[in-house]
């Protein structure tokens, strides 16, 4: 559902964009003199925006597919086990003692045994990694725009982010 939503939104936005900044679109056709470098640069910025938008959309789409699949598996299995859903209070699933994967190895075991909760957690990990991937793509797009200072600034953010994952995972 997410993908189709994004596609619908794309049409009016693209139009608004085109009317707002015609030079970016027609840049290649227009004869440009001293402003030469600025026109392709504009297009590079647009490509960078679209790349980052795409990373976010793919990450989110994949996460939703996994999470919803996981939920379906959970209820399919529950349906098979207990005829009356009444006996299965949600409390058993939403307390601190609820068993669910807390490490990468537990997660892999859970997925391997086809548990719905493992598939959900995998979707959540994809969701958590999406902003990290977005920062990494940010480094690449600034390099592509030949903006070394912004690339270094974004690289610093990426390093702090990855460092926090290492510290967080170790603690």
């Amino acid at each position: 559902m997410n993908q189709s939503d994004g596609g619908d939104a794309g049409a009016p936005i693209g139009r608004a964009d085109g009317s707002a900044r015609p030079p970016a679109r027609d840049g290649a056709v227009e004869p440009v003199a001293q402003d030469g470098p600025s026109v392709p640069e504009d297009r590079k910025v647009r490509q960078a925006e679209l790349a980052i938008s795409l990373v976010l959309r793919v990450g989110v789409g994949l996460a939703v597919i996994l999470v919803v699949t996981g939920l379906i598996v959970v209820f399919a299995r529950l349906g098979g086990q207990v005829p009356t859903g009444h006996r299965h209070s949600y409390k058993a699933y939403t307390s601190l003692t609820t068993p669910f994967p807390r490490s990468v190895s537990q997660l892999l075991t859970s997925i391997a045994s086809g548990e719905g909760q493992g598939i959900i957690e995998l979707g959540l990990v994809v969701l958590l990694l999406t902003p990290v991937l977005r920062v990494a793509v940010g480094v690449l797009t600034f390099l592509y725009e030949e903006d070394i200072r912004m690339a270094l600034i974004t690289l610093f953010v990426l390093i702090v982010l990855l460092g926090s994952f290492v510290i967080g995972g170790a603690s």
Partner: peptide, 27 residues
């Protein structure tokens, strides 16, 4: 999203991300 991701490792390892709660929230 990036600020939150910076502490996600801690939350996951501490077992604070319950899939049965997080799945409907995420979707």
């Amino acid at each position: 999203g990036v600020t939150a991701a910076a502490s996600a490792g801690f939350y996951f390892a501490r077992g604070q991300i319950d899939p049965y709660i997080a799945a409907p929230v995420a979707a």
